[in-house]
């Protein structure tokens, strides 16, 4: 991995952490798991500009660091479950050139929420599926917003283009 790639990846992790912190300042609507997923901007950026391994690094390091800094003991497990499922889906869908950034982002957002529900199911029992419809809805809406912004970022920045490495 070239130095520049490492630097851009580190910048993405730092950005993801700051975005997570900013998001924690927004009051929750009162449904567990409903959030904008601002940090996914940095993950999608890394996925498109650096590659899938770097995106995995950005996402998992961000989850670990943010949970240690701002989270509670349980938040790491929910975030990690969501992040892993979301990454798998986004990496897979990214391979299809006919699918847009918004498609990848919406899938990632919904899969993140599904991953969290699955973890909550394991930890707390099946009654948490009650939240699934609203979490699919919120993941879709958040995914569209993040996807549109991410598409602009990917298009307008020439940082991290493959030819530079």
């Amino acid at each position: 991995m070239k130095t520049k790639k490492v630097t851009v990846m580190a910048m993405c992790i730092a950005l993801a952490m700051i975005l997570s912190y900013l998001e924690s300042l927004i009051p929750s609507p009162g449904i567990p798991g409903v959030k904008l997923g601002l940090a996914n901007l940095a993950v999608i950026f890394a996925l498109y500009k650096l590659g899938w391994k770097e995106a995995v690094g950005v996402s998992l390091l961000r989850v670990l660091l943010v949970s240690l800094l701002f989270g509670h003991a349980a938040s790491l497990m929910y975030s990690a479950a969501g992040a892993v499922l979301s990454l798998l889906g986004m990496i897979l869908l990214r391979r299809f050139d006919k699918l847009s950034c918004v498609f990848v982002s919406v899938s990632g957002g919904v899969l993140h929420n599904v991953g969290q529900i699955l973890m909550a199911w394991v930890l707390m029992g099946s009654n948490v599926v009650f939240y699934l419809p609203v979490l699919i809805l919120s993941g879709t809406v958040a995914g569209v917003v993040i996807g549109v912004v991410a598409a602009l970022l990917v298009k307008r920045t020439d940082i991290g283009e493959r030819k530079q490495f």
């Binding site: 567990p32 509670h72 349980a74 938040s75 929910y78 707390m124 009654n127 948490v128 009650f130």
Partner: peptide, 29 residues
Amino acid sequence: CPDHICVRQGKIHYTGQVITCLPNRLTVT
């Protein structure tokens, strides 16, 4: 817990409705 999301979830009375406290791994159904 720090986020108090369970408190903000409000009142429930229909069958199936759940209040969840993720940090304490507690559900009220």
